[in-house]
């Protein structure tokens, strides 16, 4: 008799707890992964596709699904990598594309026909100009995403390295990982 009671009691207990969990799953139901939205909010929304994904949202999805690393966003730079690392708990790594020097687009004005196609293509609105007038690039706004190059009908846009001026000159970066050599 006691065994029967124990069996019934345990079944009821399990059913009760199961019901509670089912209710909780319904009550706290969420559509999709909320992490994607948070990652997307950190990304700079330039939609430049330098990370290899068609835009910021697809890249956010790839990070959330552990398919992509957090160090692929070139326009976001170090700041975005650190913020993503805090959010996802992944380790901070240097930006992958930083090996290649930072470049910006330059429009050869004598070849520009003023077609405004590059203005539409620029994700950060760094190109100014109007129809039938030559365009030019606002250098410090350009992220170097190269999206304007394929759309230009006269191939008048080239990537250039920024010239060193008194305003942007910096000391060369120290060689090797920080702290190495200092200890020995």
């Amino acid at each position: 008799m006691n065994e029967f009671i124990a069996l019934m009691l345990f079944t009821l207990l399990a059913l009760g707890f199961g019901g509670l969990l089912a209710w909780a799953a319904k009550r706290f139901h969420i559509d999709g992964n909320p992490l994607i939205g948070q990652i997307d909010a950190i990304l700079p929304q330039t939609q430049c596709a330098q990370c290899g994904y068609p835009g910021c949202k697809p890249y956010a999805e790839a990070i959330a699904n552990d398919e992509a690393d957090i160090n692929l966003c070139v326009p976001g730079g170090e700041t975005v990598v650190i913020m993503l690392s805090e959010l996802t708990g992944k380790e901070i790594k240097p930006i992958e594309a930083e090996a290649k020097p930072k470049q910006f687009a330059f429009i050869k004005e004598e070849e520009c026909i003023g077609c405004v196609k590059c203005i539409a293509a620029c994700p950060v609105d760094a190109i100014i100009g109007a129809a039938k007038f030559t365009h030019t690039v606002i250098t410090h706004e350009c992220t170097g995403c190269e999206l304007c190059i394929p759309v230009c009908p006269t191939d008048c846009i080239v990537m250039e390295e920024p010239s060193v001026t008194q305003r942007n000159w910096q000391w060369p970066k120290p060689v090797g990982p920080i702290g190495e050599g200092a200890r020995k």
Binding site: N2, I5, A6, L9, F10, L13, A14, F17, L20, L21, A24, A25, F28, H29, I30, P34, L35, Q38, L87
Partner: peptide
């Protein structure tokens, strides 16, 4: 039926953890 307590407690703990997980996923995804 006190002899059931270990298995009953495991069931209780599993429920609490399951509940916390579902609630936390909604309230604090980070």
């Amino acid at each position: 039926v006190e002899f059931l307590r270990t298995v009953a407690f495991i069931l209780t703990i599993a429920t609490v953890v399951g509940f916390t997980e579902v609630a936390m996923r909604k309230l604090s995804p980070m």
